[in-house]
């Protein structure tokens, strides 16, 4: 399983034709204390780059874009009661949903960990 990142700071952990999705530590830090994660309905179809979910902190709201195309097959509903997981463990416990990928080749357009770290430095 490998982790990939987008320029909008989502991550995708790809395992075969499945990918877990969440937001990066950098994004979680920038947002501040997360108060709400709006998860999509299971079965929702998205194309890469489309709005997939939304996240709110006290003073900010932002959309989460689909890092890859596919269908939502699982959501992490523990985030409803404990959105603080996004701050505490953004890249582990606070995975948001799982996509069944329709085009696994899209992974090629994402950054690996090293590339993402370099990207963050360039900001």
């Amino acid at each position: 399983m490998s982790i990939y990142f987008t320029k909008e700071h989502e991550w995708a952990k790809v395992n075969g034709n499945l990918a877990q999705v969440g937001i990066s530590e950098h994004a979680a830090h920038e947002l501040g204390d997360v108060t709400f994660v709006e998860l999509p309905a299971i079965g929702k179809q998205v194309k890469q780059g489309e709005v997939l979910a939304a996240i709110e902190s006290v003073k900010a709201a932002s959309d989460i874009y689909a890092p890859l195309s596919g269908k939502v097959v699982k959501v992490n509903s523990t985030l409803d009661a404990t959105p603080e997981q996004v701050n505490e463990s953004p890249e582990q416990a606070a995975w948001m949903l799982e996509l069944e990928l329709s085009d696994p080749a899209e992974v090629g357009s994402l950054m690996n960990k090293e590339q993402y770290d370099a990207y963050l430095k360039s900001l």
């Binding site: 204390d33 108060t35 709400f36 902190s57 006290v58 959105p83 603080e84």
Partner: peptide
């Protein structure tokens, strides 16, 4: 003193 806005929102 400063108020916990996160607690209020959650």
């Amino acid at each position: 003193t400063r108020l916990d806005e996160t607690k209020a929102a959650r």
